[in-house]
Amino acid sequence: MPEPLLAVVGATGQQGGATARALLDAGARVRALVRDPAKAGDLAGRGAELVRADLQDPDSLRTAFRGAQRVFAMTTPFGEGGPEAEVTQGISLADAAADAGVEHLVFNSVGGAERSTGIPHFESKRRVEEHIASLGLPATIVRPVFFMENLPWMVATDDGEVVVRMPLPAGVPLQMIAVADIGAVAAAVLLDPSRVPSGSIEIGGDERTGEQIAAAFGERAGRPGRYEAQPLDGLDEDSRAMFAWFGTPPAYRADFAATRALAPGLQDLPTWLAGTGWSG
């Protein structure tokens, strides 16, 4: 039997790219769905088949999925139209996968989506999850926690110190994961969906308070680290709801052991910082 063909949506983006690279590292047959093939030369050079597709064009998705046995799909709430547009994207993706006869869909959602958080971009992903379930399409829902890649935007230097400022109360732990590890988990599930028999998994790589995050950044930069909790005022509605949820634990509930079983190279924050070359 030939190896299954695995289609990856958003293969030039963060999560899709990480998934495509992990699959190629494993020697899988990969079809990379991209809007601009010129930006995916590295994937083509590693053997991926490039197919032009657009989340706004359901016909292009059905064509791109045709012949693929398994699909990795994700949506984003941060473009034009916000979370409502994300729901539309997700429904189109799921419908296209079902129409194309895909055997298994791996949908990247968000940790806590199933727990009625009230966070707009969590609720939009939950609506996509519900639509996937309504189709009866075999699927695995992967729910990552906070991205480590978001942390450097909250870091500054002040009088020789590394200062982390977040709208998160002092002493409250935040679960986090590196995007590369999200890709490793998604790839593992695409290669063998039976590895998540429950059909869903919340994934994380580390858990640290604001003070511990600041200490990790400070140690990496060779400077003292300081944490300053910020108020929720001034955040947009979505971010305010998310950080308010973070601040009243338990919020994220990642299964760290199951994550590591799927991604043996799972990174904690210091390991991820070292790998990025971040130095302050």
Rank of each mutant, 00 (worst) to 15 (best):
A40M: 05
M74N: 14
M74S: 15
A133W: 13
W272A: 00
A98R: 15
D95R: 14
P77A: 13
L151P: 00
D95G: 11
V34H: 01
G205F: 03
G112W: 01
A73S: 13
G118V: 02
R29K: 13
P152G: 00
D268R: 12
P58E: 08
D59G: 14
P270W: 05
L174Q: 14
Q56I: 10
G205P: 10
G136A: 06
A26R: 14
D57G: 07
I182K: 02
A133P: 09
G17R: 00
G205C: 06
P4K: 00
K125A: 04
F147G: 06
G27K: 02
R220I: 05
F147V: 00
G16R: 00
A221D: 10
A258G: 09
V162C: 01
A133G: 11
D54K: 09
V196F: 08
G204N: 10
A98P: 08
G79D: 10
D192P: 08
A215C: 06
L6Y: 07
L93H: 00
R253V: 14
T19R: 03
N150H: 08
L174P: 02
V87Y: 01
L55A: 13
R253T: 14
W278K: 11
A68S: 15
D99L: 13
R226S: 10
A18G: 10
Q230T: 13
L43Y: 02
G204Y: 03
Q230I: 09
G118P: 06
R220M: 12
V196P: 01
S124N: 11
R31V: 12
I141Y: 10
R260K: 14
D238I: 04
E211C: 06
L33S: 03
R66V: 11
A187R: 00
R52G: 12
G41F: 11
F256W: 10
L50T: 04
E103I: 01
G81L: 11
D95S: 14
A44V: 04
R66L: 13
R127M: 12
G27R: 04
M148H: 05
G265K: 05
